[in-house]
Design a protein around this nucleic acid. Sequence first.
DNA 1: CTGCTAATTGATAATCGTTATCAATAACGG
DNA 2: CCGTTATTGATAACGATTATCAATTAGCAG
Lengths: 146, 146
Amino acid sequence: MPEKDGRFEAIIEKIRAKNFKLTPQRMAIARVLSDGGRHPTVEEIHEELRDRFPTMSLATVYRNVLLMKSLGEVMEIGFADGSNRYDGMRPHPHPHAICIACREILDPELSGLEDMSEEVARETGFEIVSHRVDFFGICPKCRAKK
Amino acid sequence: MPEKDGRFEAIIEKIRAKNFKLTPQRMAIARVLSDGGRHPTVEEIHEELRDRFPTMSLATVYRNVLLMKSLGEVMEIGFADGSNRYDGMRPHPHPHAICIACREILDPELSGLEDMSEEVARETGFEIVSHRVDFFGICPKCRAKK
DNA sequence: CTGCTAATTGATAATCGTTATCAATAACGG
DNA sequence: CCGTTATTGATAACGATTATCAATTAGCAG
Ligand SMILES: [Mn+2]
Ligand SMILES: [Mn+2]
Ligand SMILES: [Zn+2]
Ligand SMILES: [Zn+2]
């Protein structure tokens, strides 16, 4: 499981610092979430850990994702259809490219977001504190299938 | 109720063209949705029409918002917390500025979105077909209250 | 290593926004 | 005005998430 940047260690350290207990389930969930490039759902995390933790409840996954979110170590990407996905690799707001066919989610490096944020502030008088930027389309793999 | 651009007429015409019936409830809902600048929830629409239609069911509002959405005449802005808001003034994807204090939603005119879309396409290989761009912050009114 | 205590877990019930169901009503073409 | 059929209002069902609670276990003191 190739987590980069020591994200797993950062999450565990935050949990320890706040005096939460380090259960095997909790660590396994943190490991899946810190796996770069993926944006799994709670169901997918639960499914993925089924082999190692056959009795782990879905509620435990929900609870721990919620905990890590509240610690600022996991970012939630919620959609209108109710499906939520999680990114423990980059826990701060960043743009996404989302395939509407296979639901793959990428983290594109994007310039100009800061400028756009300032433009919104200038025009509306808002003090901008966060953003949510998604681009929907068809990924190369799905395009080839047509 | 100051709808601009004849949005109300456009919605009604689309409904007529598809041979759906023009009920008083349906027309009233269309009128609220075509009211520019607002982004009401289903509950707010229901509440707003309570005086004129005391017996109108919440389900009727849901149904008609869904209908107009499927006709491409109303855009849904869904949030992770489950709250959905609707824009019948601009039924195509466009950026929003959202106050995290009072939940007011504005439609800022924003340049550079098209360029950003192309940048994502170039970097990811995706064929971009849509987007969702929200900027969250504190509006001038709420800022003054501090 | 052992035992204590509070946090966590697993199982399940409750919640809440939305959608489906269905009998009664009403739009609209003839 | 009539008949057909969509629509409405009332309410049940739904599904993802959250709350509840007894049983378990991590972390720690002895
Ligand atoms: Mn991401
Ligand atoms: Mn809008
Ligand atoms: Zn794809
Ligand atoms: Zn405000």
